[in-house]
């Protein structure tokens, strides 16, 4: 499989204020601080992280809401950020996003028709777009008479289906799913997830699936990356990731998941339990940013930031426990 989208050394820093007597020293939040990954064609790449990890900032940078501070994102080998030049309409068509909160991503004052029509108007203007809109609604399993409804008349799951229909209106090849089901109940989540999987197969879509829910990731992603304070800690194939989690943070997260069966309980790492909290991204700890919460902390950890190391083929970890100078495994 070829890489469809690659992020290399991606950084996004936000200046949120000034400190010091003369207010000369900017206070920066390093929301994303050197992230590299590749999403392959036709796969679902899972980006997992807790709040403040910077996972959504990665999404918003890809979609073009932010300019990266450093690093680059390439789509089909073409850089998405070429100076101040505006992104071409062809690229905008190809990359779409489904936001987390359908309550906010659908304008309450516009009908379903108007909402789904907008991308068509911009990219494929037609005299009568109604048949196409109805076809899009059918794709997401909504009845045609929904065209005249306003978002507040729809349930949470239905709203998200409209948002998916809007994202698919331009026939994209790459769709970012930013926590598409975290605002929904499980029974509705299941439906949306299965719909997304079906659509992926039907239209050969590639997904960047962003979530905080590792159990969900286990069931949808082909590869998983985990983020902590703006950096990726671990990347692996999904099956490998859940079978052999290396990074202490991954283990901590996995051990924290509330599960519903004994079989799942077996899979949870036992030796690590969650402690501490994510520090404010304004004051990132020195060295490896996870070290204050890490049960396997060494002296080196607070001084030096570890590099990404490929421990097994396709399984990379950013932790001193696995650095070559520590003798790897």
């Amino acid at each position: 499989m070829t890489d469809l989208l690659t992020a290399t050394g991606l950084k996004k820093h936000f200046v949120i204020g000034q400190s010091g007597i003369l207010k000369r020293k900017p206070i920066t939040v390093k929301a994303v601080d050197g992230v590299s990954f590749a999403v392959r064609e036709g796969e679902t790449f899972g980006l997992v992280g807790e709040s403040g990890s910077g996972k959504s900032t990665v999404a918003y940078t890809i979609i073009g809401m932010y300019q990266p501070t450093e690093g680059n994102i390439a789509f089909r080998g073409q850089s998405l950020f070429q100076g101040d030049k505006k992104r071409s309409s062809a690229v905008k068509k190809e990359i779409q996003i489904v936001f987390q909160d359908p309550g906010s991503s659908l304008n309450p004052r516009r009908t379903v028709k108007q909402i789904v029509e907008l991308p068509l108007q911009i990219h494929q203007p037609e005299k009568d777009p109604l048949p196409k809109i109805v076809r899009l609604l059918e794709m997401v399993e909504l009845p045609p008479d929904y065209v005249h409804k306003y978002p507040q008349m729809l349930g949470g799951g239905e709203k998200q289906m409209v948002a998916i229909a809007r994202a698919l209106a331009t026939n994209p090849s790459f769709v970012i799913l930013d926590e598409p089901t975290s605002a929904l109940d499980v029974s509705i989540q299941a439906k949306i997830i299965n719909l997304l999987i079906r659509l992926q197969e039907e239209f050969h879509l590639s997904y960047l699936f962003i979530t905080h829910d590792l159990s969900l990731m286990r069931n949808v992603a082909s590869r998983v990356a985990i983020m902590y304070l703006g950096k990726i800690c671990e990347i692996a194939e999904a099956a490998e990731f859940f079978r052999n989690p290396y990074h202490p943070y991954t283990q901590m997260l996995l051990s924290s998941i509330p599960v519903v069966s004994a079989a799942e309980e077996e899979l949870k790492p036992k030796k690590i339990t969650s402690r501490g909290e994510i520090p404010s991204p304004v004051n990132v700890p020195s060295g490896c940013s996870f070290h204050p919460r890490c049960p396997e902390k060494m002296d080196l950890c607070s001084m030096e930031d570890p590099l990404m190391v490929e421990v097994e083929e396709g399984h990379t970890v950013r932790c001193h426990l696995f650095s070559p100078e520590q003798g790897g495994l």
Binding site: Y60, I63, G64, M65, S89, K92, Q96, I97, F99, Q100, D101, S104, S105, L106, N107, R110, L118, P119, I122, H123, A163, R166, T170
Partner: peptide, 13 residues
């Protein structure tokens, strides 16, 4: 800051 604005922007409205 509502996402429907972000959505319209990224679509190219």
């Amino acid at each position: 800051n509502e996402f429907f604005v972000a959505s319209a922007e990224t679509i190219g409205a």
